[in-house]
Simulated scan of single mutants.
Amino acid sequence: MSETRAWRTVLERIEGDLLEGRLAPGDRLPGERELASTLGVGRSSVREALRVLESMGLVRTASGSGPSSGAMIVAAPQGGVATLLRLQLAARGFPFSDVVATRAVLESSVVDALAVAVRDGADPDLAESESLLAAMDAADLEPDEFLALDARLHLSLAEASGNVVVAAIMAGLRTAIESYGREGAAAVADWPALVADLRAEHAAVLDAVRAGVPELARERIRSHITGFYARAHLTASAPSRKGP
């Protein structure tokens, strides 16, 4: 099991316990060693899952020893957070063709909004997107690492657009997006060549946004999203597959 898949296993287990009421505010999670042993993953994967849950405001972690150490549930999923968690869990079973079509619609609206904002004189915050784009240029990235950065780049654009609903949906689809990305990576004969193309496509999308040309930004993002799946033979006309 890859490290990326492993920490998602931990995250999904804790998410499920929260949504089903098996965990509630005030409850303490088992220690890293126990969670790792129970779920068959490394302790680093447990730490990464807890970091994500802490960033969502659902757990608090404390180092050291004693009754206040470790991870404690501090909030129950409510409202938008509960919906996001349910979407993350459900997304594992979405047909890839539906995810591709949804991404094309959502992300076209995202880059359109960003490019229109630039054209109209606004200055959307693209700092994280730029940073992720640079990080993806590293030559020693493993496929899982590249795909994790890729998914985060797309989410960062949604967040920069200011549309919190679209950003939440994109965050909820992250498991499915990375899963199909890994499936596609495994199906491509020349992964380095594909990575070079993906890097160029990401840069081209951001160039269109920075130039304030919404039509071009929409065209480039749709081509980028659908082109990857076509090259990996995960086309919308192929039989629908389920997530992991």
Score class of each variant (00 low, 15 high):
residue 233 H to D: 15
residue 213 V to W: 03
residue 75 A to L: 07
residue 208 A to Q: 09
residue 7 W to L: 05
residue 213 V to G: 04
residue 149 L to M: 15
residue 124 P to V: 05
residue 16 G to R: 12
residue 143 P to V: 01
residue 16 G to A: 09
residue 10 V to P: 01
residue 57 G to P: 00
residue 183 E to T: 14
residue 178 E to C: 05
residue 242 K to S: 12
residue 232 A to H: 12
residue 78 Q to M: 05
residue 96 F to I: 09
residue 192 P to L: 00
residue 205 V to Q: 04
residue 170 M to D: 15
residue 120 D to A: 08
residue 35 L to G: 03
residue 103 R to G: 11
residue 125 D to Q: 02
residue 237 S to D: 10
residue 81 V to M: 12
residue 235 T to N: 10
residue 168 A to H: 01
residue 224 H to D: 06
residue 164 V to A: 09
residue 109 S to N: 12
residue 194 L to R: 02
residue 137 D to R: 09
residue 91 A to K: 02
residue 148 A to W: 04
residue 167 A to Y: 09
residue 222 R to I: 07
residue 97 S to N: 05
residue 142 E to P: 04
residue 105 V to T: 04
residue 9 T to N: 07
residue 73 I to W: 01
residue 181 G to C: 11
residue 186 A to L: 10
residue 143 P to C: 03
residue 111 V to T: 04
residue 59 V to Y: 04
residue 140 D to S: 11
residue 244 P to Q: 06
residue 6 A to Q: 13
residue 156 S to A: 14
residue 58 L to Y: 14
residue 63 S to P: 03
residue 83 T to D: 10
residue 158 A to E: 00
residue 93 G to Q: 13
residue 9 T to Q: 07
residue 177 I to E: 14
residue 117 A to K: 11
residue 33 R to I: 07
residue 32 E to K: 06
residue 109 S to A: 13
residue 188 V to F: 01
residue 68 S to F: 15
residue 93 G to N: 12
residue 24 A to M: 03
residue 124 P to F: 10
residue 96 F to M: 09
residue 49 A to K: 14
residue 5 R to N: 04
residue 178 E to V: 10
residue 79 G to P: 00
residue 51 R to M: 02
residue 212 G to W: 03
residue 21 G to D: 04
residue 224 H to L: 11
residue 197 D to Y: 06
residue 87 L to G: 11
